Every structure is written in C-alpha cells, then in structure tokens.
Computed example of a mutant assay.
Amino acid sequence: MSEEVKVFGAWGSPFSRRVELALKLKGVQYEYIEEDVYNNKSPLLLKYNPVHKKIPVLLHNGKPIAESLVILEYIEETWKGNPILPEDPYEKAMARFWARFLDEKCLPALWNAAWSPENEREKSVEEACDFLKTLASALKGKRFFGGDTVGLVDIAANFIGFWLRVLQEATGQELLSAEKFPDLVKWTNEFVSCSVVKESLPPRDRLLAFFKARVAGAMDAQTKASK
C-alpha cells in the first residue's frame, strides 16, 4: 500500500523547510504544495489547520498534523530509519528542550533584533546575542547539535544556519559573526554544506530580494509615519 504524504508550505519559510529536510533525511517521498500565506491561503490549508491557519501542515494518509516541531516528532515516530532524536532518554529530552528554546526564545529575539527601530535596536540586539550565546553552549565542540549527524536541534536551527545570514545582508545588522560566535558560525558552515540540507533551502538570491523588499517597505512606512 502506497503512502500519501503531502507538505503544505511556503518557499521562504524555515518552518516548512524543516519538515522537508526531515522527510528527505528519512528518505520519505512526498508531494509539496506551495501556499500563498500572505494573500490567498487555500481552502485545503484552512481545512487541515483550522486552529492556526498556518503552514506547515503535513498530511499523512489523509490525517493532518500542524506545527513544525510537532510534525518533526511525528516524522521521527512514523519513519524509524535515520533517527533525528537520540535513543538515550536524557539526550532526547535535551534535544526537545533546545528545539523549544529556539522557537520560543531565540528565533523571536533574532527576528525582532533584525527589524527593530533604531531607538530600540541596541537592547534587542543585546537580547538576541545573549540567546545565541546560550545556544552556542549546547554545541559543546560537536560537529552538529545532534553529534556527528544532523538531528532535531540542527533542523530546528535551520533559520540560524541559513536565513539569518541572508537577513543580515538585507538589513545591514550583524548578529552572528565569527568573532562573537566561532562555534555557531562553524556549525552553520557544516550545516549548509550537507547535500541533503542544500536540497531543503530556498534560493539565496530570491530570499535576499524578498528581505530587501521588506526592508524597503519598512523604511517607506517609517518615512510616511514621520511626515
């Protein structure tokens, strides 16, 4: 019996790209469905994720699962090959802890720091850097957060591994540098060098253009507000 696996996502979303990366690591064939999350969400997306009305959504044999970290756990439990979580209960709990830390603390702070107005920038950048420093401590000299192979925390940190550098280029805000965070920068280089990871990243030029357009839009809004 053939399995039906579909991913509802958006090309530039690190969250739907997480799901694709996990499926690729597991060798699971899937159909990808692009959603226009800003202007025209499809009836299917609203049907399968009526609570949050967001991507990503994994559809497995007609059953929808929402929220990227929940989906990653589901993928791990459903397809046992190439595990993304350690077997040891403590190590597994730690991986879940850091994945949640990324979503609840680190990523919101980085996003806020990148887009914060000038009068709030110093404080927001300081907060973001504190979270990066905490995250870097979880590497402990390892190649990946998961050890020798890409695991749950690496997948959850994909925004830092790829998106953040592109966002920095668009905004001119440097949050992640080799001087401040040598271990994290080394990890980002290892992460994006993996062939399976490369297949799960958006085109850099297109992402940079998208962020630059948002920067220009934000500047226009600020100019109009100050007139």
Rank of each mutant, 00 (worst) to 15 (best):
1 M>I: 09
1 M>W: 10
9 G>E: 03
10 A>K: 14
12 G>S: 10
12 G>L: 06
14 P>V: 02
16 S>I: 06
23 L>G: 08
23 L>Y: 05
24 K>Q: 12
25 L>G: 00
28 V>T: 03
28 V>I: 08
28 V>G: 03
32 Y>A: 02
34 E>D: 14
35 E>F: 02
36 D>H: 05
36 D>I: 06
36 D>M: 06
37 V>D: 08
38 Y>A: 14
39 N>G: 13
46 L>H: 07
46 L>S: 05
52 H>Y: 15
52 H>G: 12
56 P>N: 09
56 P>L: 00
57 V>Q: 05
58 L>W: 01
59 L>N: 09
61 N>L: 04
62 G>H: 01
71 I>F: 03
72 L>N: 03
73 E>T: 07
73 E>H: 14
76 E>Q: 15
78 T>Q: 12
79 W>K: 04
79 W>N: 09
80 K>I: 05
82 N>L: 07
84 I>S: 08
87 E>W: 00
88 D>N: 15
89 P>G: 08
91 E>C: 00
91 E>K: 13
92 K>N: 11
94 M>C: 12
96 R>T: 11
96 R>Y: 03
99 A>M: 02
108 P>K: 09
108 P>D: 04
108 P>F: 01
110 L>S: 04
110 L>T: 06
112 N>H: 09
112 N>P: 00
115 W>N: 04
116 S>N: 05
116 S>F: 00
117 P>Y: 04
118 E>S: 15
118 E>N: 08
119 N>Q: 13
119 N>G: 02
121 R>F: 06
121 R>I: 00
123 K>W: 01
124 S>V: 11
125 V>N: 14
125 V>K: 15
125 V>R: 15
126 E>F: 03
129 C>M: 12
129 C>L: 15
129 C>D: 11
129 C>N: 11
130 D>I: 00
131 F>M: 14
132 L>G: 01
133 K>I: 05
137 S>C: 06
139 L>Q: 15
139 L>R: 12
140 K>T: 05
142 K>V: 09
142 K>S: 13
144 F>Q: 03
144 F>W: 05
145 F>D: 14
146 G>L: 00
146 G>S: 01
146 G>F: 01
147 G>M: 13
148 D>I: 07
148 D>C: 06
150 V>T: 03
151 G>P: 00
152 L>T: 08
154 D>A: 02
155 I>C: 04
158 N>D: 11
158 N>S: 15
158 N>E: 07
160 I>W: 10
161 G>I: 06
162 F>R: 12
163 W>Y: 05
167 L>G: 09
167 L>F: 08
168 Q>I: 04
169 E>H: 10
169 E>N: 14
169 E>V: 10
171 T>Y: 00
172 G>L: 02
172 G>D: 08
175 L>C: 07
177 S>Y: 10
178 A>V: 03
178 A>T: 06
180 K>N: 13
181 F>G: 11
181 F>D: 11
182 P>I: 01
185 V>R: 07
186 K>S: 13
188 T>E: 12
192 V>S: 10
193 S>F: 01
196 V>Y: 00
197 V>P: 13
198 K>W: 14
199 E>L: 13
204 R>L: 06
206 R>H: 12
206 R>V: 10
209 A>W: 03
212 K>L: 14
213 A>R: 03
215 V>N: 08
216 A>P: 05
217 G>F: 07
224 K>S: 12
226 S>Q: 12
